[in-house]
Structures are given as C-alpha cells and as structure tokens.
Nucleic acid binder design. Structure first.
Lengths: 193, 193
DNA sequence: CCCTTTCGAGAACGATCGGTCAAGAATCGT
DNA sequence: ACGATTCTTGACCGATCGTTCTCGAAAGGG
C-alpha cells in the first residue's frame, strides 16, 4: 500500500479548531495553520480539502464535543432545575475566566460568518436548536415535577436563558469582568424561583 | 486656495459604516469600500488614513449615534421602568426584523476584533459601559420612585439586561426568528415586576 | 526486492490584499 | 486670467492570500 500518515488528523483538527476559535475565520491564514498544526501545507489540503471545509469540520467537531455534554446534563434523571442552574452558572464562569478570550466558537461563527455563509449558518442553527430545546425540555420537566410553578412558560423561559447564554459568551470574549457576568446569570436564574 | 472636496466625507463615513456593519472588518476589502462609497481610492486614504482607522472612525460614529439615544431615553423624567421596558423591547424588535442581518456593530466588533485589537476593544467597552450605567441609573431611579421593590438590586438587574441585549443582537444576526427574541425579552422583563 | 503511496519542505501559481504614486482636472485667492 | 493648491483617476507597488505542484525521502504490501 503506502506510507502511513505521520500525523494524527484528529489532533490536527483539534489544533485547527483552537486557532479558528481564538482568531476567527478571516484573521486565520493557512500559513498560520501550517505553523500551528506542524504539518505540511499539502497534507493539510489532502486531508481537509480547503480552508473553508477545514473550518466547517472544526465547527462540526466543536458542536459534537459541546452540545451533547449540555444535553446530557440537562436530561439527567432527578430534579431538573438544579441542572439548568448549573449550566447557566457554568457558562457565566467559563466566560468570566476565559483569559484567552475565546468565547463560544458557535457564537463567534454566528457573528462573523453566518450572515454570508449558509453552511456555517446551518451548523450554528443546529447547535442553537439543540441548546434551546434541551433547556425547554428540562424546564418542562421541572414544571411537571413541581419544581416550577404551573403558570410559567417553559418555552419562553428557555428562550430567555438561551439568549442570555449567547450574551454571556459575547461579553466574555471582550471583557470577562467576573462580577458583570455572575450578576447577569444569578439575576436571570431568579426567574426560576 | 485650492479645489474643494467633491464628496461628502460624512456621507462616505456613513457608507463605510454600513458596509463594515454588514460584512465585518476582515471580509470587507478596500476595493469593496471604493466601489460602495463611489469615491476614489486615494481620496479614501487621504481622508481616513487606513482601513483600520476608517473602521475605528465608523465604530466611533456608530457609538455617537446609538449610545446617546438610549441614554436619553433611559434618563427622561417621569417613570423609569417603562423606558427600560421600551429599550429592551426595541432591541428585540430590531433584532427580529433585521433582514440585513446586521446585528449591533459594537457587538460584532466585540466578537471579531476586540480580542486582538485593543483600540477596538476600548471603544466597545466604552459603549458597553454607557449602556450598562444608563440601565443601572434608570433602575436605581425606578426603585427610588417606588416602581421597583426595595429588595431588588439595580446593578445586578442592569447587568442581566445588558447581557441579554448582547444576546438578542447576536441571535438576530444569524436567525432573526421573532418569537424567540420576543419571548426572551418579555421573560427578562418579567424580572422587573 | 520494487512499486505505490504519502510524507515533509518549499517553490510557484494567479488573485487579491492594503497602500502609494504620478499624472490631469478643477477650484480657489489674487 | 493666472498660478497655487488639492482634488480625482487609475495605474501600480510589494506583500500576502488560498491553492497547487514538484521533489526527494520514507514506509507499507506484493
């Protein structure tokens, strides 16, 4: 057959993800990627196709890593409300302690690429739909279990938390002032009392 | 003396703002700007210096146009809470009806440029500080006027609304689904009851 | 062994990037 | 009307962009 690959495509994709995540799409050049991944230019193209495809694959990978973790956390058996609180607080904490100013890769993509890149927009919407519906079913379950008053609207509450989470990530990317984000999260969570 | 300018620098800056606003910094080339502004390349450089300076001036102009409007609205005499509600709802409505997918120019800058552009980051933080403190003083006034229960924390509430506004703009840039944004806004405003 | 495939390093591709320059055209004060 | 000055126009710059190609070396399977 042939010579075996000397680099791990999985690790290379992870490396590319980290670079795109920090700098965004346009500000990251193929030369940057070649340097950072430590693999040859030609291998990069042979393995991932193009810069755009590489970005989409990195975005896909990010979604595969992040989305299920949140969904599982929110759908774990037992009380649902504490799980929701934990997710929101973790978003605030991660945004506040984000010294690399990375924010959320999906959110960054939504702002930089989605308006003029339908493939990216589709992937963003997929992650967002998963997040919103995970929050919705958790809150629905909370209401059914008596953790949440009957008159609350789980759909609307989930949407409000979802939008807040996007805001946390955006603010954290520029100015991860801990007090600001923690206050925002705790006030929003007061709606669940 | 000398020949007078044939173009209106103010209108040109406004045009540049619109282009940067829609496409972002990196995805907008000087060639795009020359086409869109209708003025010569050299005139552009003579008037605005460089692409980066032009972007910062556009950002400055956006801030000068947007920030005071909100601050005035929130500091108008009379009941404070309705003004806060109106501002939040207008953000949701503008984000939901944003068919050009522009979002907020400051928010877009925060995501694309702020992490590696200190000048842009400073301007973002200035707008954000104005917005947050305008919300804070409005809510403080609301509490003093008996519109808000004594035990509420105006600072924390303002921070929560501030973060939510950022989220509204981000979500609106990719998917201005009206229901999502309106629900988010109205649920957040329920915290003021 | 040989053949094939993939590797790394780098040259080279055309296109486009942000930015500059050299004219000619137009407008002022005199 | 004239000269001084500053505009517009469009060609032009080197650098960098994403992408392809060449090349010799290295590592499998027959």
């Amino acid at each position: 057959m042939a010579r075996t690959k000397e680099f791990d495509p999985d690790a290379a994709l992870q490396s590319a993800l980290e670079l795109f995540w920090r700098r965004g799409y346009e500000a990251t050049s193929m030369a940057d990627l070649v340097d950072h991944l430590g693999i040859a230019r030609a291998s990069l193209y042979a393995t991932f196709g193009s810069k755009h495809e590489l970005y989409l694959k990195a975005l896909e990978r990010y979604g595969e890593q992040s989305d299920p973790r949140i969904a599982e956390e929110l759908s774990a058996p037992g009380p649902a409300l504490p799980a929701v609180r934990a997710v929101v607080r973790r978003f605030a904490e991660e945004s506040a302690c984000d010294e690399l100013r990375r924010g959320c890769f999906v959110t960054n993509t939504a702002v930089e690429l989605a308006p003029h890149d339908t493939a990216a927009a589709r992937r963003v919407e997929k992650s967002w739909h998963e997040l919103e519906s995970a929050l919705t079913s958790a809150l629905t379950r909370a209401r059914a279990q008596g953790e949440l008053p009957e008159e609350r609207d789980p759909v609307a509450l989930a949407r409000m938390l979802f939008v807040l989470l996007q805001g946390l990530r955006v603010v954290g990317r520029t100015n991860p002032e801990p007090g600001r984000l923690r206050d925002a999260a705790s006030q929003a969570l007061a709606l669940l009392d």
